[in-house]
Design a protein around this nucleic acid. Structure first.
Lengths: 204, 204, 204, 204
DNA sequence: GATGAATGAGATTTCATTCAT
DNA sequence: TATGAATGAAATCTCATTCAT
């Protein structure tokens, strides 16, 4: 039974690409490295993908669309804005926890690669910012969020903080582990929403 | 009189490199593009710099050391932690304001280029995080900052937010202008220190 | 009833190859283009033909043998040499008229492709020259043709003129149409046999 | 003294390309074959020429422009049309005599390569036909040439005959040698202008 | 210091052909 | 017969770096 279908082979190549890109980076990765890692012939990569770029595009879009779906689902719920932002943070952190290589590739090779793939997928990346900004906007209208800071700006700061934390894990600059992952979720939301400063109430 | 000294030529090449890297990105920039833009012969680039990489390394280190100096100077002062962080934000934003191309190159090609120059200069970049973390730490010891969030983590979130805002400007995702620059300084500090949430006045 | 026999499929592939080669040229045509145009599976082309080359070889030989048969039939008749050459010209021009794609492929990809298929089929092409030369030889022996020019040379000039005219039609350099086709038959023979010069009436 | 200038190196590469293309044909010739034959490094070919195609384009245009110049010079003289056509034939035959490799490349790889370079240089090739046609037209106006055959058609037949003869030499189908070269000049003109048929005077 | 011609390693991509089903 | 996934050799072009003058 369990025959190897075309879709399987595609998947095998994609999985190999994740490992290779995570290990060597997109630029240093040769198509033959991917084929070797996948255990298939050189040309098969080109049978399933039009180019080396298309492999990364596919990897990114598949995963980023999952993220957008998750954000939209959170967005459609009727939780408080803070909880929505926590849910999003949680989804991103868990994505890294469960599949660090994929997230490494997406962040390092796409969202942070401003001059290459980052630029190409700017619109797609921007969609996430817009969805986050909308949540901030809701919070401001409801009065739970302060109104001075523009939602767009707040979304940038929020996402920038998360991405930097992931980057810290990716490059072993920040300790990484089950405890740290959970802690990070709370910390990000606590920092961006609550602020680093101690409540001034105590001063009174 | 005003003869062109060796140091001048070096500077001319470095300035050209900034323009070329900002315009085309490091990877798409050929050494000949730099020479052409500088109006010097191809080989002269190699007379002053050992390699193409060394040009970018030089560009980065020169500027990043200025940043580190600025942070250290701020650090050595005895302002409140919040004011220190504002001063750092201010320095970074003004750097972009006065020399957008240099900052674009440093951010896009080095600090965000995690797999290439970012990795190479990890230690140098880390120095900035450590200095920022120290300020947070001071704030926590003084009781003005809340203690739960680790200083290292806070530094990451703080720097991540700033970098994302700069990236937004660089890629025209965020409006850019004198007013926006000043506003951004306040917003970043306000967001990270004060938090997005409205003061819990209601609770009282 | 009307089942699709093996011979039919072969024919379908051959006809598709003619269209594809005429449209894209042999080199730019992929085997998959032929299969697609024929509406059959990729591998079936290899079921009926040993290679891509063999498809063109078959196309050429089938048609060129028809030409040789026609020339031989003309040759075997007892018409005057001029009429024989007219009949040959007529057959070639009508071949183009009725099946421009096939003739385009044969001329462009074989008889003019001196370095590839032209060389491979040199002997077969030469057969046509020899038959034509024989007709010229007959004319010379009969005294209707002048004797200085060697038959072999005359055959080259004769065929060269025809082929250039066909090439002119193929690439829209010469007007093409029913009238032009008929006219061309007369013109070729008139030019090569009668010459471009006006009869030396002045001599009288 | 006699230093090797840049122009020299270009020439050396071009000459090597002629030898290699003549020997192997354009398609089978690798750029490294040219570099090897020229005794220079691979990359130098790309220093002087943008692509492999550009090498052949250069080869063709240089020589074809010489041909056009020669035809124009002949055209501008006030010889009789027959003499002008003889002069053109003579120039082409001598070109082959003195530089058979160059002419082989130009004919085989460009003028007869209808689907690739022939199409690209169609306009340039057409210029020659037009100049020849103009000479025929003059002859017709002067009454020395018969008027029925269109000049454009006559030019095709004339050039087609010459090219086929050259092709015959190139592929050893026609005997080649000093005597044959001179003979061919006369034969081509005699065939196309005088016609193959014996003067009808005898008939009277 | 200054020049730019010369070098050559390296990687993507194409596509004819094979072959298991 | 028929399918189309799988194979892998081959060749162009790029460009950082070197070096003779």
């Amino acid at each position: 039974m369990a025959r190897t279908t075309a879709a399987d082979k595609r998947r095998i190549i994609l999985d190999a690409a994740v490992r290779v890109f995570a290990r060597q980076g997109f630029h240093s990765a040769r198509v033959s490295d991917i084929a070797d890692d996948a255990g298939v012939a050189y040309g098969l990569v080109y049978h399933y993908f039009g180019s080396k770029d298309e492999v990364l595009d596919t990897l990114f879009l598949d995963r980023w669309n999952l993220l957008l779906d998750a954000i939209r689902e959170v967005d459609d719920g009727d939780a408080a804005p803070r909880d929505k932002l926590f849910a999003i943070t949680s989804f991103i952190v868990d994505s890294y926890r469960h599949d660090p290589d994929v997230m490494k590739v997406i962040i390092v090779e796409v969202t942070r690669a401003a001059n290459s793939f980052g630029r190409k997928h700017l619109g797609k990346i921007q969609e996430a910012f817009d969805l986050i900004a909308a949540i901030v906007d809701d919070g401001q209208r409801a009065g739970t969020f302060r109104g001075e800071i523009t939602p767009q700006f707040a979304a940038m700061a929020f996402y920038g903080a998360i991405e930097q934390v992931l980057t810290g894990w990716i490059f072993d600059v920040l300790p990484r582990g089950e405890a740290e992952f959970e802690e990070a979720k709370a910390f990000v939301v606590e920092t961006i929403l609550g602020g680093l400063e101690a409540p001034a109430a105590t001063t009174i």
